[in-house]
C-alpha cells in the first residue's frame, strides 16, 4: 500500500511537471518595439513557442535603460510563466544608479549573442586605418567629435574606453539612439561614431562610411577584414550582449525544459540566419557560464562607470 502511494505520488509529480508548460508564457522585452533586443526576443520566442507548444506573448516595457522591465521580471513569480530578455544593461543599471539589482538577482537561462562596438568614420575622411585615426586624435586632443547613442549607454562607454586606452581627449556627443548618430556622421556633423557594425552596415556597403576597428576579442563576422583594437595592442573590448533570464528561485525541472527548448530554438537555422543577417555574433553560453560572464561585466562596469561619468 505504502509503495503504491509513493508510486502514485511520483507519477503525480512527474505528470505535474510534464504538464509544464500548459498555459501561455509572458515574455518581457526591456526595449521599444523595433530595436535589436525586441527583434531578437520576438524571433527566438516565435520559434520556441512551436517547440514548447504553448504561445509565448511578448510585452514591451521600456524606460530607465531597461531597468523598469528587469525590475518587473525580478519581482515576478518564479513559476516559469514569466521570463524576459536581458541586455548588457543588466550589468550596468546599478552602476548608473538606476536600480539596485545585478545579474545575481536572476536565474539566467542563456546568452544569445554579442555585438561589439566599432569605430566608424566617413569614407571620404583622411583616415584609412585605425592607426591614422589614433595618431590624429593624439595630436589634436579635444577636437575630434565622437557620436554615441546616449549618455551612459554602452556605446558611450565604448568611446570612453577608447579615449582611456589611447590616452587622449575626445568630444563626446550623445544622440537619442544609434541611428541618429549614424545619420549625423553621414551628414558630416560629427567625425566618428562608436556604435555597432550592424548600425553602420548599410553606410559601409554603399561606400559612404568606413569601419576602422572593432572592439571585440575576435574579428566581426560581418566585416572580417576589419582589425580588432586588441590586435593593435590596445586592450579595449566593449560589446553589447543579450540573453534570457528568469526570476530567481525557479524550479530546476522547469528551468531544464525552458533551457532545452530555447537552445533548440537558438540552434534552428531560421534563428542563426537571423543573427548573421543582423550582424550579431552568435555567442551561446549556458546559464551558469552566462551568470559568471554577466557578473564579471557587472564588476567591470561598477568600477568603470562611476569614474567615467563622474557619478
Amino acid at each position: 500500500m505504502k509503495r503504491f502511494l509513493v508510486g502514485f505520488l511520483v507519477i503525480m509529480v512527474v505528470m505535474l511537471f510534464a504538464a509544464y508548460p500548459d498555459k501561455p508564457i509572458t515574455f518581457i522585452i526591456q526595449a521599444a518595439p523595433g530595436g535589436a533586443s525586441d527583434m531578437v526576443s520576438r524571433t527566438i520566442t516565435s520559434i520556441a513557442q512551436e517547440i514548447l507548444k504553448v504561445p509565448i506573448t511578448c510585452t514591451n516595457i521600456t524606460g530607465a535603460s531597461g531597468a523598469i522591465a528587469m525590475k518587473r521580471l525580478q519581482t515576478s513569480k518564479p513559476d516559469g510563466y514569466t521570463m524576459g530578455y536581458v541586455p548588457v544593461e543588466l550589468s550596468m543599471v546599478k552602476a548608473l544608479g538606476f536600480a539596485d539589482f545585478g545579474p545575481e538577482d536572476f536565474d539566467l537561462l542563456m546568452r544569445i549573442m554579442v555585438i561589439p562596438a566599432a569605430v566608424t568614420v566617413r569614407a571620404d575622411s583622411q583616415w584609412k586605418t585605425i592607426q591614422d585615426f589614433i595618431d590624429y586624435v593624439k595630436s589634436h586632443p579635444g577636437t575630434v567629435t565622437v557620436g554615441n547613442s546616449g549618455p551612459g549607454s554602452i556605446w558611450h562607454i565604448a568611446a570612453l574606453s577608447l579615449e582611456k586606452a589611447i590616452g587622449t581627449k575626445l568630444v563626446h556627443v550623445p544622440f537619442d539612439g544609434a541611428a541618429p548618430a549614424v545619420a549625423a556622421l553621414m551628414g558630416g556633423h560629427i567625425t566618428a561614431v562608436t556604435v555597432s557594425p550592424t548600425e553602420v552596415k548599410s553606410g559601409v556597403e554603399s561606400g559612404q562610411l568606413r569601419i576602422l576597428a572593432v572592439m571585440s576579442e575576435e574579428r566581426s563576422p560581418l566585416f572580417p577584414q576589419v582589425p580588432t583594437l586588441k590586435e593593435l595592442g590596445y586592450d579595449v573590448t566593449v560589446a553589447a550582449w543579450g540573453g534570457l533570464a528568469l526570476p530567481k528561485g525557479i524550479d530546476p525541472q522547469i528551468y531544464k525544459i525552458l533551457a532545452e527548448a530555447f537552445k533548440k530554438a537558438y540552434d534552428s537555422e531560421a534563428f542563426q540566419k537571423f543573427l548573421s543577417d543582423r550582424g550579431m555574433t552568435p555567442a551561446y553560453l549556458d546559464g551558469e557560464n552566462f551568470k559568471a560572464f554577466a557578473v564579471s561585466q557587472f564588476n567591470m562596469f561598477m568600477e568603470l562607470i562611476p569614474k567615467a561619468l563622474g557619478k
Binding site: A32, G34, A179, M186, K201, E205
Partner: peptide, 27 residues
Amino acid sequence: SLGIPGDAVTAVLIGAFIMYGVQPGPI
C-alpha cells in the same frame, strides 16, 4: 535610399527588409 531609420516604424521595416535578404541603401 540611405538605410537610416527615421523613426521606430521604419526601424522595424529595415528589420523586415534584412530578414528577406535585402539591405536598404543605395545598393
